[in-house]
Design a protein around this nucleic acid. Structure first.
Lengths: 228, 228
DNA sequence: TCTACATCTGAGGGGAATCTGAGCATCACG
DNA sequence: CGTGATGCTCAGATTCCCCTCAGATGTAGA
């Protein structure tokens, strides 16, 4: 699940991000209200939950929460050092789904994140743009994990799809081998095996477009940019 | 909105009831776990939220929460004097939507009740459009929880229906296992059991359309999109 | 209480997805 | 060309994931 962390202190953010990532969250970090609101424009990818620190440098945290509420229904958990009751009530009445006071226990924060996301109807834009990537004759639907070439559906396995999805995030950009391994396999183990090559090969043959995935010797792979 | 207050101390209950009533809640009082569970039988279950005190005379409050979760999806706010982190995490992971420690501020409690019910009010709002889903020969009526295949009614159990209803929200979209567990079972327990598979199997056999629910290996399940 | 039903758990097995290793092809450089 | 380094292909071997089944546990109703 995608999570937007709004926190001005880089050290705190880094530490928390690591913990959240270890528990399966895809964390995006915003350093201030402006960045947070930009990340939440409807067209960009939707988040499952927002962790909002109220002590932001550029604008009032409460206002940010209000603005978030106006443009999305993404659940918001306020995280702040302000412990007084009045602040809590104010925050909750502004539309926050939960209010956690610093210092908090990370285990409890995780439990509350889960509790909030449990009761949220997952409504990311279905069928709208953003879930579909088009690369020449290849269509990739992230939500249904369907891939088609020239209109005909191609059956991909899990790793094959994850690999393609990763590369298609940034067509033309070279992904390093270790980077691919760590993202698709979710481990830092850099095996000596031929695993990655095998999957690339099978992807190439299934897509019937051997040139789509380009090998960059000594570095990694990339998708060829759509021929402009 | 109807609210179920589970609290063994009559004085506390009376005082709190008065406050809640003054804020527009229709309060029902249960003095122990037994009464609470009786009030929540599916027929009369039209509570918007449950306030559950964990210090009950007849049974363990956590167990009561688990039992509530097994029969309804009504949001639960735990109210208790146990302030330690372990208890909080335990409670939230059992499916509670919030956890408030005594002594609490009534204003904050009200704000939290509102925050929780905000999320759940429109969730099961029948009468709005889309209470009937059609997928080929399968008709799903969300309001009456009736499912029919080729015109003949199929009797589904609670979990079976919830599972089908979830998947039918977005035909074709792949739901991850954890997501299904968390939405249908409403806990973050991801056990090692074969529970999900068993229910999928029984759904497949009851619907007499084994291909309707497709397994996506390593990810989860999805309904096959209506063959266009 | 007893009975029927819903739900959960564990063992066993099958089959697809994935991994591994050896040999081959290709590239960059002299 | 020759050579070493790097990537590719292929065919088992293995792992992992899911399915089935049978029984245990829990729950509602007679």
């Amino acid at each position: 699940m995608r999570l937007l962390l709004v926190e001005d202190d880089n050290h705190v953010a880094a530490a928390l991000s690591a913990i959240l990532a270890r528990h399966g969250f895809d964390v995006t970090h915003a350093r201030n209200g402006e960045e947070a609101l930009q990340a939440l424009v409807p067209e960009s990818d939707c988040f499952g939950v927002v962790l909002l620190d109220l002590g932001l440098p550029d604008q009032d945290g409460y206002e940010v929460c209000g603005k978030i509420r106006k443009r999305t229904s993404t659940p918001v958990i306020m995280v702040t050092a302000r412990a007084d009751v009045r602040s809590r009530i104010h925050g909750l009445n502004l539309g926050a789904d939960d209010y956690v006071v610093k210092p908090y226990d990370t285990g409890e924060l995780l439990a509350r994140i889960h509790a909030v996301s449990r009761r949220t109807v997952h409504e990311d834009a279905p069928g709208s743009a953003g879930t579909v990537v088009r690369l020449g004759a290849v269509h990739i639907e992230l939500s249904t994990r369907q891939v088609s070439v020239d209109g005909s559906v191609v059956q991909l396995t899990r790793k094959e799809f994850d690999l393609l999805a990763l590369l298609s995030q940034r067509p033309g950009v070279v992904f390093r081998r270790e980077q691919i391994i760590s993202e698709v396999w979710r481990t830092s183990w850099e095996g000596t095996g031929r695993t990655l090559e095998v999957h690339v090969a099978s992807l190439r043959s299934k897509l019937r477009m051997p040139t789509l995935i380009e090998t960059v010797r000594g570095v990694g792979y990339r998708l060829v940019a759509p021929t402009a």
